[in-house]
Design a protein around this nucleic acid. Structure first.
Lengths: 147, 147
DNA sequence: GTATGTGCAAAACCTTTGCTATAAA
DNA sequence: TTTATAGCAAAGGTTTTGCACATAC
């Protein structure tokens, strides 16, 4: 099912309303190449529809997250701001280059395996795992190494 | 070398001054059983020495982090606040129970291996890795499961 | 003595919330 | 028509900063 319909249904199921502002925000999230933070999402939405406010962006993001449709992530070590992306099928994580700002996505089973190891070893149930990786990408690394 | 001396030397090496406030904050960080956030550190420090302000706590934490003496961590999924701890020899990470708030420390080589895999696979240099795990500890999990 | 550090209060920053009007159902 | 959602602006919580005074070196 397309993401917009998923969102529309999920919101309506809980008695919520699929307003034009919410529709626009959902469309932008779906179409985004990269990872949007609230401010950027607001800029994009506001450019298309002046009636969208930053408060509505935040409220909509929280609604969508509550419905399990998007994930919050932190990309930087300092975690200044959250970015949001549709929940996908693949377990993927992010590496952010502190040199050029590029975000590299990668898939790995290692986090999943770590979770399983902890559930067995510590007897816990892991509900959230956040992994933020930072450093230099290949281009920035070789450039810094002076060649 | 004791942590206090390390800190004293590191600060002085960069032309900094090892003031009484900084000494106290370093002592508290070293002696802490758990993971202190800035507010808690301020409470402890201020109780012992009224001249310590919250601003000085933050400034000192930043100086110590810059000198590589302490690490910032986020324990919760929502990352509301940072906690600080001396840089240790062991690679350890944290699991926070959302039921009772308990923080479980554990050691693992898995993050280190993930880093190495990325450095080879993507050609990057990983400088920071932040892993935040949340869920239910054994006690809270069994209680919630109703038995 | 000089530069760095300090407290205080105000600002910065991202995010949430109270209120009244609006619009989805 | 009913009730959730909107915008706006103000508040929230954590962290940083400007300034004048204090203090480590």
């Amino acid at each position: 099912m397309p993401f917009i319909e998923q969102a529309s249904e999920a919101i309506r199921e809980t008695g919520g309303r699929f307003t034009q502002q919410r529709r626009l925000i959902v469309e932008l999230l779906e179409g985004a190449e990269g990872h949007l933070d609230a401010e950027r999402l607001y800029q994009l939405a506001h450019a298309r529809d002046e009636t969208v406010s930053l408060a509505t962006v935040y409220r909509t993001l929280n609604v969508l997250e509550g419905a399990g449709l998007i994930d919050q992530r932190y990309l930087s070590h300092s975690h200044e701001r959250k970015v949001y992306e549709p929940v996908g099928a693949s377990e993927h994580y992010h590496f952010t280059c502190t040199g050029c700002g590029r975000v590299i996505e990668f898939e790995t089973q290692r986090v999943q395996r770590l979770k399983e190891a902890l559930e067995v070893g510590l007897g816990v149930r892991v509900e959230h795992a956040c992994l933020c990786l930072e450093g230099l990408c290949y281009a920035c690394r070789t450039q810094q190494e002076g060649r």
